[in-house]
C-alpha cells in the first residue's frame, strides 16, 4: 500500500496526469490515504470553480459538458471533467459510457482537459464520497474549472449543490408534458438553465415556460437565472453558456456568496464525517450483537426506539469511561 501511495503523490505534485488518475482511484479504494494527502496540501484547495451539470437521462449532458470544456480551454482555462454514472446495483459492475459523447478535442487531444468516468458505486444514484474527493484532487492538481456531470433521477441532483459552486440544469423540448412536471427540487438548485436540443420543435415553448416559472420565484440573491438555448451536437450556444457560467462565478465572488456557500459546505461535510466516525466508533465500542438485541427488543415491542437509543448511549458512555480509566 505504501508503495502505491508514494507512487502517485510525488508525481501528483509535479503535475503528472497518470499520478492524478492514480490519486482518483485511491479516493475510491483507500480514501484515508487521499484524506491525509489533501490535509497535508490543503493550501492547494479552494481555487477551482466547481460546476455541476445535471438533467434527465439523454438530455445531452455529456455532449454539452465536452463542448463546454473545449470552449473553456480555448479561453485559457484548464479543465477537469468528472462524468458520474449510476452503477449497476447487483453485480457492482458498470458500463460508463459518457466519455463516448465527448467531442474529439475532449477525447484526449488536449492536455488541458482531464476526463474521468466514475460510477457512483452503490450510493443509489447520488454522488459518492469519492466524487467529492476527486473534485478536491482536481482542485489541488491545479485545474481552474471542474465540471461534474450527474444524471438527474429526481433524488440525487440535490447532492450536486453540496459540491458545486454553479449548477446548470438541462431541459429538453417536449420533455414530459411540460416543465411543471419537473421536480420542484431541480428548479430550486439551478443557477443556470439550459434548453438543449434547441434544434427540435418546442424549444421556444420550453424556454418560455422556464422563464415564466422563474418570474414566480423571487430571486433574493441578486443573481438573475438565465435560460440559454443550446444545440450541443453543433456547438451552438455553448459560448453563451461559458460566458454566463463565468459571470455567475464572478457574481459569487463579488457578492460574498462564495464564501457563504463554501462555509455551509464545510459545515455539512464536517457533520457527515463526524456522523460516520461516531457510527463506526459506536459499533466498535458497543458491538454489533447489542445492536441486534435492541433491534429485536424494538420489533417485539418491549422497548421504544427512543429508549433503545438512551440505553445504547449509556452503554457507550460507560464503556468509553471504563477504557479511559484503565
Amino acid at each position: 500500500m505504501s508503495v502505491v501511495k508514494a507512487d502517485w503523490q510525488e508525481g501528483f505534485l509535479a503535475g503528472d496526469t497518470r499520478a492524478l488518475a492514480r490519486a482518483i482511484s485511491a479516493a475510491e479504494n483507500e480514501p484515508e490515504v487521499v484524506h491525509s494527502f489533501l490535509q497535508e496540501h490543503s493550501g492547494r484547495l479552494g481555487r477551482a470553480h466547481v460546476v455541476g451539470i445535471t438533467g434527465p437521462p439523454g438530455a445531452g449532458k455529456s455532449t454539452l459538458t465536452g463542448q463546454l470544456a473545449v470552449t473553456l480551454v480555448a479561453r485559457g482555462y484548464s479543465v477537469g471533467l468528472l462524468l458520474v454514472d449510476p452503477s449497476s446495483p447487483f453485480t457492482g459492475g458498470a458500463i460508463l459510457g459518457d466519455r463516448l459523447r465527448l467531442p474529439d478535442l475532449a477525447q484526449g487531444s488536449s492536455s488541458q482537459i482531464y476526463v474521468r468516468s466514475l460510477s457512483s458505486r452503490g450510493s443509489m444514484g447520488g454522488l459518492s464520497r469519492a466524487t467529492a474527493d476527486a473534485i478536491k484532487l482536481l482542485d489541488a492538481f491545479g485545474k481552474d474549472i471542474i465540471i461534474v456531470e450527474t444524471v438527474g433521477t429526481g433524488q440525487s441532483e440535490t447532492d450536486i449543490i453540496s459540491v458545486a459552486d454553479s449548477v446548470v440544469v438541462l431541459a429538453v423540448p417536449g420533455l414530459g408534458d411540460d416543465i411543471q412536471a419537473m421536480k420542484a427540487g431541480i428548479l430550486e438548485i439551478a443557477d443556470l438553465f439550459v434548453v438543449n436540443k434547441a434544434d427540435r420543435d418546442g424549444a421556444d415553448k420550453t424556454e418560455r415556460e422556464l422563464l415564466s416559472m422563474l418570474k414566480l420565484q423571487a430571486s433574493s440573491s441578486g443573481w438573475t437565472i438565465p435560460v440559454i438555448k443550446t444545440v450541443a451536437i453543433r456547438n451552438e450556444g455553448i459560448a453563451d453558456l461559458a460566458d454566463q457560467l463565468l459571470a455567475h462565478y464572478e457574481f459569487l465572488q463579488t457578492s460574498g456568496l462564495l464564501l457563504e456557500v463554501r462555509t455551509a459546505r464545510v459545515k455539512s461535510e464536517l457533520n457527515e464525517l463526524l456522523q460516520l466516525r461516531l457510527t463506526q466508533e459506536f459499533q466498535k465500542v458497543v458491538g454489533a450483537a447489542r445492536y441486534e438485541e435492541y433491534t429485536q427488543q424494538i420489533v417485539s415491542g418491549n422497548i421504544s426506539p427512543y429508549e433503545a437509543v438512551n440505553q445504547l448511549w449509556q452503554e457507550f458512555v460507560s464503556e468509553i469511561k471504563r477504557s479511559a480509566s484503565s
Partner: peptide, 14 residues
C-alpha cells in the same frame, strides 16, 4: 456487458 456483469467497470469510448 459481459465484463460489467462480472463486476468490472467498463469505460466505453465508442
Amino acid at each position: 456487458r459481459a465484463l460489467r456483469d462480472a463486476g468490472m467497470e467498463v469505460i466505453y469510448t465508442g
